[in-house]
Design a binder for these strands. Structure first.
Lengths: 218, 218
DNA sequence: GCGGAACTACACTGTACGGTGTAGTGTAGG
DNA sequence: CCTACACTACACCGTACAGTGTAGTTCCGC
């Protein structure tokens, strides 16, 4: 009765290996150029197994992107806890933001994986509308950052009239120049350059949301 | 002697028609999925003519992206003149910046062409390293904006310690949220939303570079 | 040790596409 | 009229790849 001829259950480990290999190949080649044969080779698995697990190339791609993005969201929350988790007073704030920005941007630019997934999603947005479903405000990473900033606002460390907007600007200010210059991970970028870009971004963020700032909107 | 078997001269009009059709198809399908047959059909031209003009698919792609980007740089300078060209005093400044941002972001999000080329370049950065050659500071659009901001700085309308950085932030603040939400043109965005995003970006820009702002760096 | 599921190796089909070669049709200039 | 060129239409080659079918092997639970 079901159109789908029942995917194989299999082992989570093997499934994970396939997803990892698929991510590698998709990121390196793009969706259209990536061949299932190459993915099977990279995962040390027979092509047949991939089809038994995932059905077809499209579903393999979607699973890969979704599972990778989910894992990154978890990693992001960790990063957030480690860098912005214990800001005691105002003196801690800017260093904490810089350290957050640096950790985030470095991961973005160097581990390449996060930016690479972003690049994949941008490239394939037309062909996989499912990828662009989730609005910014509902992404868990965004929520976590917005909540943290709102808390800083309540404690008087920052002036945060709109936590969602503030979170968006912070993430953007510390990462987008890095992403643009590295073409979302396609071109290399050295640490000093990353530091410079992040520091500039944090400076702009603080001038807009810093504690001493009156919200001088009419 | 030359490896290249001499491309055909032909008429500029026909060449332009091919480039326009190629841009359409490349943007819609991506490089790998786009077939030269489809481009020929879209340009109402025989496939053979395309090969006579451009040699192969790769060179067709590069010509398309480069020529489109060059045309956009010209359009950007026009836009700059029309929106930031005659700022008489401080009262003119914010409206002018908003109007610049709105014009730019609207073009980015709606005409789709600029963002689409960006999307193409991001997607193909790995396979066409030539695309990511030019550093930010040397792009003519960036230079034009930076020069304009530097002038505002000299006239005391803004506080611009580093025109290059300021130009980068302004362009970024008014466009990147639009690009991210529209997935570089792949998803629609309504005018009200664009206005909101642009206004927010200009506000942050002015809090960092506004005239009343002391550069309180230690 | 039996049965079934997981898995591999491999052959095979259909199709799409990059690129080429060529014959033939305008078309402009001398 | 003749030559040279731009261009089209079309057939064609080689290859790459998604997806399937299947026979045989390994592995695990009972």
């Amino acid at each position: 009765m079901p159109d789908t001829p029942a995917l194989r259950q299999g082992s989570p480990a093997k499934r994970a290996a396939i997803v990892r290999a698929a991510l590698d190949v998709f990121v390196r080649e793009g969706y259209a150029r990536a061949s299932v044969d190459a993915i099977a080779r990279a995962a040390s698995v027979s092509k047949r197994t991939i089809y038994d697990y995932f059905g077809d190339k499209e579903r393999l791609f979607l699973s890969t992107v979704e599972e990778t993005a989910a894992a990154q969201a978890v990693a992001f929350r960790d990063l957030l806890d480690h860098t912005l988790g214990d800001v005691a007073d105002e003196a801690d704030l800017e260093p904490a933001l810089v350290s957050f920005g640096r950790a985030f941007a470095t991961e973005v630019a160097r581990s390449a994986e996060r930016a690479a997934v972003m690049r994949l999603m941008i490239a394939e947005a037309h062909h996989f509308p499912a990828l662009l479903r989730t609005p910014t405000e509902e992404r868990p990473a965004h929520r976590a950052l917005a909540d943290r900033l709102a808390e800083f606002g309540r404690r008087g460390l920052l002036t945060i009239p709109d936590p969602d907007e503030a979170a968006e600007f912070l993430g953007l200010l510390v990462t987008v120049r890095v992403n643009h210059r590295s073409w979302y991970g396609a071109a290399p970028l050295d640490d000093a350059e990353i530091d410079r870009l992040v520091a500039g971004g944090v400076r702009v963020f603080l001038s807009a949301y810093g504690p001493s700032r009156a919200t001088d909107r009419p």
